[in-house]
Each structure stands twice: as structure tokens, then as C-alpha cells.
Design a protein around this nucleic acid. Structure first.
Lengths: 129, 129
DNA sequence: ATGGACCTTCCAGTAAGGTGGAAGGTCAAG
DNA sequence: CTTGACCTTCCACCTTACTGGAAGGTCCAT
């Protein structure tokens, strides 16, 4: 199948697929005599896998690591587990920070809502921040 | 004071201060005869304000909007309130998404922890993702 | 044989908030 | 008078995941 068909079948664009190839996420496809990329249908599965990795918050570089291990004939399970663990730890920290930030902003905004603007002194930029 | 001193006093770098000037966050400073930027000490307050804005999750562009209003002689309170409100809404959505992602990843990781790697079929990349 | 839809490569740009480095000017101390 | 720490400008680069566009080649139907 040609790149446009593959893009359609996997819910992405030809441009993105070329980009994935360039980044090492997709192996270089066979070419027709005219130089067109010619994919086998199982490429769809690989692209779906990339999408699932992204949906799990992995970067393309991390997805690529997993694919490299699999392409090497090994089972990437251990590595996947490590990635998910560290993603989970990052996520917990990220969530904690956002929740703290939310707390801070709520307070600032409540102040901003109750104080009269007229009483702002011009030598600060804004008393609420 | 020179740019290096100001950077030191406000906990940033000279490079960053030049960048802020270029972005319109800091007004162009006076210059010494030799062409050195010469700041008045109140620049520290402005940079602290920028830092507080960033700490509240505002972008430099948003901080700049507030500063522009203030520099225009107006009280930016209303605008600040709007920014904080919309930041709060964004934050809630962002947190909800991360919590959902955390849920997804927890499930994936738990699967990955309980299944034997040997049972992975080689025609999938990884059964956990 | 010509039009349109497809494909190719390569180069450039996007957001955001800076960082790095080169080439050169300035200033105070020794 | 030189050394070293500053300062100046300008240009490029970093991250991530693409996207846009130009210039050209190919394929199929009319």
C-alpha cells in the first residue's frame, strides 16, 4: 500500500509517516520502481502501537526504544514496565505540582475578587501577584 | 546598576534579562556612555513580578499583557483576575487529563507486572501497550 | 496528451523560554 | 600596558512532534 493509504488506514498523515521513518520509528519501506514507498499491511499495527504509546504519555523517543528492542528480537516487557513506572512517578509529581499551583492561584484569585481596584498602589505592578 | 548585578539581585542571568527586554517585558534601560545598560534598583521589583507571574503558571506573554496595562497607567486587576480564572480552568482540565492518564498507566503497568514475558507473542510489539 | 491526484526530496518554520558562543568594546587593578 | 572580568551585538541552537511549501516525478482516466 502507498503512504497515503497507510496514513488513512492508521489515522494520520503521509507527512507524519515520513517523519516517523526519519526518526527511526518506522523501518524504511520497500519502494516501487517509481520510487514510491510500498508498505505491507502490518505497518498499520506498528503505527497503532506508536499511537498507544503516545496515549500512555510516552515520547516518540521512548516508543522508539521499545520498538528497537522488539526489532532486535527481544521482548521489551521489562523495559516497558520501567518506562511506565517512571512515567507514573513523573505524573505523580506533575499532578502534585499542578494541584499546588491550583491552590496558589485560587487564593490569588479570591484576593483579586474581594479587593477594590482603586486601592492599588501604582508602585507595585499588581498587588494580587 | 549593570545587567550582571541586576541579574544577581533578581536571581536570573544577564542573558535572560536581555531576552526579557527583547520580548518587551523590560523597558529598554538607560545606557552608560560606553553603551552598558544602566538599571535603576526598582527593576528588581519588576523582575520579581515576572517571576511571580511565572510561578502562577502564566506565560511570559500573559505577564507582558499585565505589565503593558500597568505601564499604561491603568490598574490591571480585572485583567489579572480574568487571566487567573482562565488559568484555573486550564489547570483543572490539565489535572483531570493527567489523573486519567495516571489511571490508564497504572492499569497497564499492573498488567505488565503480572504476566510472564515468555508468553508474549512476537507478532505484537508489546502486549502491555 | 493533459489534468488532477498522488508521490518524491529538501528546506524552513511553529510554540516557549531561554542557552551557547563568537567577535569585539570597556574598565579597574596590578 | 596588559590581564581578566565585565559588557555589547548577532546568530544559531535546544526541546517535541510535527506542518507547510516548493519543485519536480508518476499514474490513471478522459
Amino acid at each position: 500500500m502507498r503512504i497515503g493509504e497507510l496514513a488513512e488506514a492508521s489515522g494520520t498523515t503521509a507527512k507524519t509517516l515520513r517523519f516517523y521513518e526519519e526518526q527511526g520509528l518506522l523501518p524504511a519501506a520497500e519502494r516501487t520502481p517509481a520510487g514510491y514507498r510500498d508498505y505491507t499491511p502490518d505497518a498499520v499495527g506498528r503505527i497503532d502501537f506508536i499511537h498507544r504509546g503516545q496515549a500512555a504519555g510516552l515520547t516518540l523517543a521512548q516508543v522508539r526504544q521499545i520498538l528497537d528492542i522488539r526489532d532486535d528480537g527481544q521482548a521489551p516487557c521489562g523495559h516497558v514496565q520501567d518506562l511506565l513506572d517512571s512515567r507514573l512517578a513523573d505524573l505523580d509529581e506533575q499532578i502534585a505540582q499542578l494541584v499546588a499551583l491550583r491552590e496558589t492561584i485560587t487564593q490569588l484569585r479570591d484576593q483579586a475578587a474581594t479587593v477594590e481596584p482603586e486601592t492599588c498602589s501604582p508602585d507595585q505592578v499588581c498587588r494580587y501577584l
